[in-house]
Design a protein around this nucleic acid. Structure first.
Lengths: 344, 344
DNA sequence: TGGCTGAAAGCGAACGTTCGCCCGAACGTT
DNA sequence: AACGTTCGGGCGAACGTTCGCTTTCAGCCA
């Protein structure tokens, strides 16, 4: 049996005051004499009183809870970025005395209905969304309702809502420029599906860098696929089996996951990564620096994305119209040994 | 402005009944005529009524929330096992209409005080704990309070509480037996700190296998360290720099993280993993199969651990005394190319 | 005709807070 | 002496449910 719950009334009775006075003391407001204040505080300690959060939530119409809506990966996959992001918002929220409530969201089954209840039932005070897609229905719905939320990632550019994102276009541009500077001319890309807003955004960086350097590129150097290791393996395989003279000398993966697939393909074809072919990734996943060879990649400031998302959400919930509602953070090029000068 | 909330009373007024009757209809209990029932349901849909969860929580004294207490890693580290575990409990809990509330727990700062409030304030109906240590104060406290919880991992064997764990001893025994069968005799272990209950438990499996095979082993073949890549690197470096005749032919890492460190050390010393030295891990982290060479390891049934933890917790919360309160799941040996017959 | 039964729906209370208002005493001012 | 102010603290209400009890009334039987 869990011990009986101690309420304000229990404390009040023992301290010989009304229970509302106890509430005042605990909230630190209203005028109460120093003696009664002290007396009440002693009793509170003696009894080990803790305010009942459920009752408070009902009364003040807040829950001190923040929802996090994301698309879960299948058990056998993993997404290092989203996992770090979750850690980051959890910790940031806790510093503000809030907690994170996680909500899985299946794009296919599309249970917007559940969203209705989630938001309107008062379970959470605000929402963080990730795995945003271009015409994300959650975003549209929340905007319509004027419910406080912040998205990690951009959607339809015509929509005006609060988001934080990493400027992947700039990241890929830097990577491309770096490879061009090393002397590479035939640079292929292992990209995501064309429906991915983030993916297309990053590709723009590649195009910009190539055009600015006056290097022509073929449509065929971009291969689209899912963000899984095997897609990287297959895509890289296609490129690397061509005759050396027309084979790309560098492969840019749109994620570390794709790059790992590419590294495995190169290895299986007897090519040495970093010498025979340069391979780069995007994310700087925890283990990427320990691969053989260590992976050149673009690091996302994921921890900062999480912190700023929470920060921004609190501003919105407080109604203090934030200065910036759309924040783009720059990523950083991390050069390791999986890239080098072209061999030929 | 968020739109005004619709309550039972709004529905009742429009349907021409008392609000308690509406509640009855929604709960599906009590006797209400078919006509009024239908009429109420129409109004509910028209108005888009959603019950206020905060009020319900107060009334029924439950929150439909489950707390998850774990020790966060520093931002630059990562623990693939715990991350999958979290995913798993989130999904399992959602299937039962509950959500997970995450609580960071710093062992050092030891704010048990916060635990008091967490539990006694009625924020959560039950708790899942991970990162358990031998004399875990959370466990002691919750047992004393008789609050429903399930731990992922074991603590002081004298304590009787509900836990789920993976039988790491058996895992390491299988691994050791497999290496012995390949012909290895000098088998070293990269272990965790001696204060780790889980670590010592796994080591027992190694001892058992070696003794049973009648193979003598030296105390010095076990090196203890933190669960980070560099500890694996350093530990392996010590072993592999010895003269070939007395150098271990196989290295067992107590985690994939340590094994990756060891693989890097071997590489830097010019040794080929799987031929010159066998290296194995523990966990089967998502990327381990894509390392060069792919890592032989012990797979933890982590998804199942999560599911069963939630299942067990619900049984405890329902007071239906569960058949088994202590569950040990067997891990599985995954053989890949980082291990092979000894070279000499 | 009187009384019993059961279905349908209403009513009051409670969950444990917070918040605004009111009241009385003490004190100071004109 | 009458009046205003301030301080300490009490009181009632409300947040939106659920739950159990009571009331009403129609139907039926003796």
């Amino acid at each position: 049996m869990v011990k009986k719950r101690i309420t304000l009334k229990d404390v009040a009775e023992r301290a010989g005051v009304s229970y509302q006075t106890v509430s005042k003391v605990l909230a630190g407001q209203g005028s109460v004499s120093t003696e009664t204040r002290a007396r009440i505080q002693t009793v509170v300690r003696e009894l080990g009183y803790r305010p009942n959060i459920r009752a408070r939530n009902l009364r003040v119409q807040r829950s001190h809870l923040i929802g996090y809506s994301w698309q879960p990966e299948p058990p056998d996959l993993y997404n290092p970025i989203l996992e770090k992001f979750l850690q980051s918002i959890i910790q940031s929220a806790e510093q503000q005395n809030h907690h994170i409530l996680t909500f899985a969201w299946q794009q296919e089954t599309d249970q917007l209905e559940e969203y209705h209840s989630l938001v309107q039932s008062g379970r959470v005070d605000g929402l963080i969304l990730s795995s945003i897609d271009f015409n994300d229905r959650r975003v549209a719905y929340l905007m319509d309702l004027n419910f406080p939320f912040v998205a990690f990632g951009r959607a339809n550019p015509e929509w005006d809502f609060a988001y934080i994102d990493v400027d992947g276009g700039t990241g890929l541009r830097q990577m491309t420029e770096y490879l061009l500077a090393l002397g590479h001319r035939r640079i292929a890309v292992l990209a995501w599906l064309e429906s991915s807003r983030t993916g297309e955004d990053r590709l723009q960086g590649y195009y910009r860098a190539m055009q600015q350097a006056g290097v022509s590129y073929e449509k065929g150097w971009i291969v689209h696929g899912e963000n899984i290791v095997s897609a990287g393996y297959d895509g890289a395989g296609q490129f690397l089996q061509r005759p050396p003279a027309e084979r790309p000398t560098a492969l840019i993966g749109m994620s570390d996951t794709l790059a790992i697939g590419a590294m495995n393909a190169a290895h299986d074809l007897g090519l040495t990564v970093g010498r025979d072919v340069s391979i780069s990734g995007f994310d700087d996943a925890p283990l990427s620096q320990y691969l053989q060879p260590p992976l050149t990649t673009v690091r996302q400031p994921i921890w900062e994305v999480g912190q700023r998302s929470i920060e921004l959400l609190f501003q919105i919930m407080d109604d203090s119209a934030p200065a910036e509602r759309q924040i783009l953070l720059p990523p950083r090029l991390i050069i390791r040994q999986s890239t080098g000068e072209p061999n030929q």
